[in-house]
Amino acid sequence: MRQLGATALLVVAAAVLFATLAEAPPFGWQEAPTRNVITDRYLAPGAGETGVLNAVTRIIFDYRSYDTLGEATVLFVGVAAAVVVLSGRTGRFAVRLAGGSDDPVLQTVTRVVVPLVQVFAAYVITHGHLSPGGGFAGGTMLGASFVLYLFVFGADRARRKLRPETGEMVEGGAAVWYVLVGLGGVLMGASFLANAAAGFPRGVEGALLSGGAVWLIGLGIGVKVAATVANLFLHLTGED
């Protein structure tokens, strides 16, 4: 019954959407309606009015920073919800996901790889305004290095490196940092989450320390995402 209903819905939706697509602006069209004054300003050459070279970073941390605050919030909600659900697991069919491994090769390689991953993650987080990547990508890498450690050395040793309470605290703190940077704009007489308009220094074009609030927010997001990933895996792999 459920299957039949889903299939009927699929057929109807497919017919409607494919008929729609036949009329859509062609793929790769250089004069598509989406190319307008908005994208022109986003794609201004050089570091422009935001002090940021990466146009995607300009949008997520400056022009549409409010959406990104919302995005960070969704992540916070998702993890908080997961943590609550996973706390106090007492079921009959309990699963242990990470007991660790005793293999010396695996452990040695992990010891070498984890710092390298972390250095690269730090590079990606701090250079989000100049090159591809940024807080979200770098933060995920930083979190992934912890996940690797957790799977190789086991949840108990990982817990000694990062206690869940500390992870939660860092996560919340980094989110508060985002809001504080936004309120900095208010204190300087501009609007919430304002960057250059509030007087955050744009810096030298292409320099590491440039982009004003964008750089500060990117740093916070990197820390927050790393804490989120680590925290989530700590809770997914064992009882609290």
Partner: peptide, 8 residues
């Protein structure tokens, strides 16, 4: 969409 520095 990554600009080069000083790019006109």
């Amino acid at each position: 969409p990554i600009m080069s520095p000083g790019g006109a």
